[in-house]
């Protein structure tokens, strides 16, 4: 698989480490009332869809940025690659 890095252009997926579902960006916040059950849900349960999947890839052997890759789990086709930083900020995470 070739991941089209937003800053570096097309890179071999072997340069990356896979983390998982991009919903892992949305960590529950105890200060906003998140419960232990919310953390169980966050830590252990996954949608695991057959089809389009937004997922986190870490460019470990490259610029060490985190990416959100939209990839089809049936065909391995990649339709969108974004910096995870931008995605997190657009969801109100980080500053």
């Amino acid at each position: 698989m070739i991941i089209d890095h937003p800053l570096l252009g097309p890179r071999d997926s072997a340069e990356f480490t896979y983390k998982g579902d991009a919903r892992l960006i949305d960590r529950p916040d105890p200060e906003k009332g998140a419960t232990a059950h919310d953390f169980y849900d966050y830590g252990y349960l996954r949608d695991n869809p057959a089809g389009w999947h937004e997922e986190l890839w870490f460019h470990e052997a490259g610029d060490r940025s985190w990416l959100v890759v939209t990839r089809n789990t049936l065909t391995h086709e990649i339709s969108k690659v974004e910096l995870a930083r931008d995605v997190a900020r657009s969801r109100g995470r980080s500053k």
């Binding site: 579902d21 252990y44 949608d47 695991n48 789990t73």
Partner: peptide, 18 residues
Amino acid sequence: GSSSRLMAHANMRLPIES
């Protein structure tokens, strides 16, 4: 191998990735 796909029909999310 297809557990998440099948159990989604019962609105279940599993502690599983394929």
